[in-house]
Write a protein that binds this DNA or RNA. Structure first.
Lengths: 206, 206
DNA sequence: AAACCAAGTTTCCTTTAGGAAACTTATTTC
DNA sequence: GAAATAAGTTTCCTAAAGGAAACTTGGTTT
């Protein structure tokens, strides 16, 4: 294939209707970040979007320019809104913003161990990302390795009892009302101690 | 060429089962409207965007699904921003946005007295500051000025019911499980709706 | 009405996107 | 440490997008 650098020379998108070039959008990179943030493999993303694994790979590496159709599958499948996708990170006015998420009405991202409910999804370019999550009972068996990512995390137990495992510390049990604040680069994971599912609130910031 | 009506029935993309139309974006129609609104012919639009006249025609009539590349040329050439293009519902604006996910009503008996419990005090230089607070029920006479400070704030109601007042919005009632994310530079304050104290969790980040 | 012209459409062909499967690269397991 | 597994990339092919030019449509002039 030809040199793709030449094919996508600038990729410039302006969010406001300005004439100046602000920040070139690296669509592939952005998408890869989002997919990773959701903890999805290419295969899982493929199933969610209906796009082939190979296609996703090529889009992420900017070897192809996805069609509008493909982008729709992407955004609906991964539950991301397009403005968010295209929003330039810099120069975004964040004053006077507000987003209310009613109980149980966030964006849900179920996994084997958790059921994440993403809150405040209407706002992009946030400093924090709040979640409400269900930790399934006896979930410890399913997990093999530490979770590790950039930023810091705050966690509060809303219901039930969990065990908080972390790389450099002994496991601790947390009950309703207990909270923990930690560096997310340190390996960490959760398990529901009791037979019931536990509910937690957590907030990340990078 | 084959019947394109069958190829793009309504631009409805659903990942799993495709029974219902969720948010069909009629991209072509939208684009045609925009071009017309700008008073441009296909030829003129072609010159501005660098896309062939024929290609534009096909896009507008939804005979083809433009690539991301083509859409970039379109948006930059015609000076339209993509969020605007894709915004199916009302305006998704950067500033002064609001999204109430669910509606609930209660009667105002607002007050302003808190009892803050600072969490995670062992750590300094945190990106976030989490609190757990009581919102006491008091009289509306205690109304004072807006609270205003740098950064962003996330708030979740743990118990009870509060009214969240903010400078640019109507007050909203939040019940247990509801949450709100907002820019703290926007004036804001809380009040407990019922006679009982309410309990909230909130996290700030600058 | 014919002749003209301008805007938009379709045809035909080349280039590129998208998918299946083969291949590579870690990473784990026995 | 070879085999197995899993995530990601590349190859190869087909289906679809993009462009040049021919064609159609609608409006205007004479």
């Amino acid at each position: 294939m030809t040199d793709q650098q030449d094919v996508y020379p600038s990729m410039t998108i302006s969010t406001e209707q300005s004439t100046e070039n602000i920040a070139p959008i690296k669509l592939g990179e952005r998408l890869k970040d989002i997919r990773r943030a959701l903890g999805l493999t290419l295969e899982e993303a493929s199933q969610k979007t209906g796009l082939a694994r190979s296609t996703l790979s090529k889009i992420e590496n900017e070897q192809i320019s996805p069609t509008f159709q493909a982008m729709q599958k992407l955004t609906t499948g991964l539950d991301i809104n397009i403005p968010q996708l295209f929003a330039t990170p810099k120069k975004v006015n964040t004053t006077g913003r507000r987003d209310i998420t009613r109980n149980e009405l966030g964006k849900s991202h179920p996994t084997l161990t958790y059921e994440h409910e993403l809150l405040a999804t209407q706002l992009s370019n946030k400093k924090m990302m709040p979640f409400k999550s269900l930790v399934r009972a006896r979930s410890f068996d399913d997990y093999s390795d530490w979770i590790r990512h950039d930023g810091e995390e705050f966690l509060l137990v809303l219901k039930g009892e969990i065990t908080f495992f972390s790389e450099y510390y002994e496991p601790v049990n947390l009950v309703e009302g207990d909270s923990v604040y930690y560096d997310a680069n340190m390996g960490h994971m959760l398990a529901s101690v009791s037979e019931d599912d536990a509910q937690i609130l957590w907030v990340t910031a990078s």
